[in-house]
Simulated assay, not measured.
Amino acid sequence: MQVRSTSMRGGIVIRRAVARDVKRLTRLVRGSRAYGGQYAAMVADYRVGPDYVETHRVFVAVDAGDSEGRVLGFYSLVLVPPELELLFVEDGMQGRGIGRLLVEHMKAEARAAGLDRVRVVSHPPAEGFYRSVGALLTGTVSANPPAVAWDRPELELALTSTNARRAF
């Protein structure tokens, strides 16, 4: 049985994703400006399906004041092996702390699951964000054409209380 975790801060609610969210999540991924130009092919056919939401720990940040439950961002945590597989924030909402809030929530979820670290294979333009929330560069994941035609930074978020304090 999966626990439905909910938290709220500053009018933003983070809750467990459900099947009715998948179209919104897919649109968020496919519409991301970060995946324009040379990166567009990677997400052109990407789909977040109900099976994905049921299999992984997927959480959405929504505007508590929006009756439609507008999705502002989301993340997906895979437990085995521990990895932050997806993290997206709506283009127009970036720079408002939503990504940091999602990472904070993800770290708490990972700790509750007994993890002490989480791997992040970053989209190259997002590396600076991950470093700003405490991730350390551990290597590079080589390109894997045709799906991914560029090398990506591999980072790690340590979840021990000492490292977590340093990151924030």
Score class of each variant (00 low, 15 high):
R27K: 10
R4C: 06
V133M: 06
V13L: 12
A147M: 12
G36A: 11
G49T: 15
R16I: 08
E127G: 13
V71T: 09
D116T: 15
I14K: 13
E154S: 15
R152H: 01
A19Y: 13
Y52F: 14
L72N: 05
L136P: 06
V3C: 02
S67D: 06
V71G: 00
Y46N: 14
R117L: 02
R16N: 10
P125S: 13
P82N: 01
M1Y: 04
R131N: 12
L137R: 10
A147V: 15
R152P: 01
D45K: 10
A108C: 00
V18G: 15
T55P: 07
R70T: 12
Y46M: 14
G73W: 11
R9C: 03
K107V: 02
F129H: 12
R165N: 11
R33W: 00
Y46W: 13
D45H: 07
P82V: 11
Y35A: 07
G49P: 07
N163C: 07
P146L: 08
D63I: 14
D45N: 07
L87N: 09
V118A: 05
P124L: 13
K107W: 00
A108K: 11
A41G: 15
E83F: 01
Y130V: 10
R24F: 06
L137G: 14
Y46C: 00
L102M: 05
M42Y: 12
E104L: 00
V89G: 05
L136I: 12
S76E: 05
I98H: 05
I14Q: 13
A19L: 12
H123C: 10
R166K: 06
P50K: 09
Y35N: 14
P124D: 14
R165V: 13
L25P: 01
I98M: 03
L115C: 09
L102A: 06
L86I: 12
E90S: 08
M93Q: 10
V148A: 10
V58A: 05
L136E: 12
M93V: 08
V22Q: 08
V13A: 12
L84T: 02
V118G: 03
G134T: 11
N144A: 10
V103E: 00
R96P: 01
L28A: 04
L155M: 14
P50A: 13
G49L: 10
L136F: 11
V80R: 15
L159M: 14
V89P: 02
A64V: 06
V53I: 10
A64I: 04
Y35F: 06
R15A: 05
R20C: 07
G139M: 02
S132H: 15
M1F: 13
A113M: 09
Y39R: 13
L72I: 09
P81D: 02
V62F: 08
F74D: 00
